[in-house]
């Protein structure tokens, strides 16, 4: 039996590596360097911080935030008040949620203007 096991993702998340967050903010859709790639894979594979996804509102133009269930078969939660007109913005929004979940620390929304 083949399964994908979310608990197998174990690349360590270092809260001090704000340079990686900054790299992601600069190019949310990539391409990313090898270190950031590993961090993003950890975020995406583990499900910690939520199995976030998008629902198309208008094809190629607008997307709504949604959350996939942790338990198979349960409903997909949608967030109609959180929509994006660019996929990059959506990626950054979810990255910040997951950063907080893994490190306990907030990333500012406009990270490019900070010198954190």
């Amino acid at each position: 039996m083949l399964r994908t096991d979310p608990t197998t993702a174990h690349y360590p998340v270092d809260p001090a590596r704000l340079d990686l967050a900054r790299e992601f903010r600069a190019a949310p859709k990539g391409p990313h360097g090898p270190e950031l790639r590993k961090l993003v894979h950890r975020f995406r594979w583990s499900g910690i911080g939520g199995r976030w996804c998008l629902i198309t509102v208008e094809a190629g133009a607008r997307w709504m935030l949604a959350l996939l269930p942790d338990i198979r078969g349960e409903e997909i939660r949608t967030f109609p008040d959180t929509t994006f007109t660019s996929l990059e913005d959506a990626e950054w929004h979810v990255f910040r949620i997951r950063w907080k979940a893994h490190t306990g620390q907030d990333l500012p929304e406009d990270f490019s203007d900070t010198d954190a």
Binding site: T4, D5, P6, K29, G30, V40, H41, R44, W45, G47, R51, W52, C53, L54, I55, T56, W63, A66, E75, I76, T78, L87, A90, E91, V94
Partner: peptide, 18 residues
């Protein structure tokens, strides 16, 4: 659980999926 990694980005679903 692997599709977001496979796509290297947030998965985009249709309302039909919900």
């Amino acid at each position: 659980t692997h599709f977001e990694v496979m796509a290297d980005g947030l998965m985009v679903f249709a309302p039909d999926d919900i």
